[in-house]
């Protein structure tokens, strides 16, 4: 099989590394080869960050390049648009509705684009998720990651119990039930 390529994009500090850990764990449970390319260092200070996850029988390159991504989880809208060029036209995007203004927008030298969801939808299948609200509904704003993973699991398909095992293996033991609820919530929205 061709590897499945998943992009995780967002703003440094949003905690996207947890999502990539869960996906890595899922791949291991599935018996896949897997590579995850993470961003550490400077971009973690509020910059644009992209993580690549690739899983399949055999994975050589950890990178996802133009036209190569099957799925994207975007924690911030503008970042979804920034990396849309990496998507396959047959791919799917799961985008959190959160908006975080980059500094040029805050300081007034650039404008935050309008109609991002519409732009994305015109290019590739796009699922909008208000992950912050969904997270609050299940009890904590901290489980935004797991909400998004739940939605991805639904979109990607696969055995739900394996997904759940992967989530449980990556979150702090005390928060397992909270994350279980968050995963289910994401799976349903």
């Amino acid at each position: 099989m061709e590897p499945i390529s998943i992009l995780i994009v967002g703003v440094g500090g949003q905690g996207t590394l947890l999502s990539s850990r869960i996906l890595g764990q899922y791949a291991s449970h599935m018996g896949y080869d897997v590579k995850v390319s993470e961003v550490h260092g400077m971009a973690q200070r509020g910059g644009s960050v992209v993580t690549y996850v690739r899983m399949g029988e055999s994975v050589a390159s950890p990178l996802i390049e133009a036209g190569g991504a099957d799925y994207m989880i975007a924690f911030e809208k503008l970042e979804a648009l920034r990396y849309v060029q990496l998507m396959k036209k047959s791919g799917s995007i799961i985008v959190n509705t959160q908006r975080i203004d980059p500094m040029p927008v805050i300081s007034g030298t650039a404008k935050y684009p309008d109609g991002i969801i519409e732009k994305l939808s015109a290019l590739v299948e796009t699922h909008e998720v208000d992950a912050a609200k969904a997270a609050e509904d299940v009890g904590s704003i901290k489980v935004v990651n797991t909400i998004m993973i739940g939605k991805l699991a639904k979109t990607m398909g696969g055995d739900k119990t394996i997904w759940m095992e992967a989530v449980k293996a990556c979150v702090p033991p005390k928060t397992v039930s909270l994350n279980e609820a968050a995963f289910n919530r994401g799976y349903e929205v």
């Binding site: 400077m42 509020g46 849309v84 060029q85 040029p104 927008v105 684009p113």
Partner: peptide
């Protein structure tokens, strides 16, 4: 692939 979106504001650290 899909053409890159034009004129997006940059997001430096």
């Amino acid at each position: 692939g899909i053409a890159p979106a034009a004129d997006l504001p940059v997001r430096p650290p």
